[in-house]
Write a protein that binds this DNA or RNA. Sequence first.
DNA 1: AGCGTAAGTTCCAAAATAGAACCCTGTCAA
DNA 2: TTGACAGGGTTCTATTTTGGAACTTACGCT
Lengths: 157, 157
Amino acid sequence: MKWRELDGTPCSVARSLAIVGDRWTILILRNAFLRTRRFDDFQAQLGITRHLLASRLAKLVKLGVMSKLTYQERPPRYEYRLTEMGRDWYSVQLALVAWGDRWLAGEAGAPLEFVHQKCGHKFQPLTVCSECREPLDVREITPIIGPGLRVLKRVKR
Amino acid sequence: MKWRELDGTPCSVARSLAIVGDRWTILILRNAFLRTRRFDDFQAQLGITRHLLASRLAKLVKLGVMSKLTYQERPPRYEYRLTEMGRDWYSVQLALVAWGDRWLAGEAGAPLEFVHQKCGHKFQPLTVCSECREPLDVREITPIIGPGLRVLKRVKR
DNA sequence: AGCGTAAGTTCCAAAATAGAACCCTGTCAA
DNA sequence: TTGACAGGGTTCTATTTTGGAACTTACGCT
């Protein structure tokens, strides 16, 4: 299977990966959340090659995760900002950070901690059920066929 | 920057990516959550080349995300299961699914839906603050230097 | 005229992946 | 007792992707 075929599969994980399924893209988004906006800043902070950076940014813009805005006309200068779709990626990043903190930080502890301005506390992100607000455990979840798959079934005779 | 250097950086996103930063690894985990355990089953379900599958499974085992168990001695047969570290990846996967469902599912709707056995409802995963249980928004979060970075600072002269 | 800056492109070498074939150990059925 | 099959890999070559470094373009400054 090639990667182009992935975004057509009826699986939200695969579709998401078709967009953000490489390491550089995820690191670009990480830095975007840390307020990086310009080409050269991304390049210097990440150590990514300019070539790859250009192609990844173009892809993110094409797919609606980031937008490219002119912040100066002459000479033309651009900045890249997260769209709403991009900002919504934050929950994935938080989950990724939490996993890394829990399993890979070692003795030293988490490199970054986060404060929730609303309540003023340091916190961990918690993944809970939207209905009962209890934390979720794999073994208590049953996947069922959703509308996106039912359509497919009907179609293929 | 090469990928081997990544796991040494003081960032939990980068460290996590050093383990699961390629698309196949994430898809392997996805199928592991769907109860796939054997080499040939992973291979058939994913369409990954046997070579890559072998190397990815070996890496996951080496790093403690999955374990390789003998389920039959003669001839020797193995199965791959998620460890606790692997099971804990589920919150990342849920976030990824939610993002894909929200932004990439289109008209047809989500391919899979999930029922929380505890409360009996279909749900969406929600990322909330461990302290006040309110849903988190990027703009209400302040990152601060954690112990893992303070150590580094002290060390470098 | 020459230097600096932001945002890319271009080019070649090195690394990773795809696809297919092959290997090993043992079981089973003819 | 030979041949087919199963599970779990390994090996090989061709193709794609990356990495690294230099070059380009369009302007503004001194």
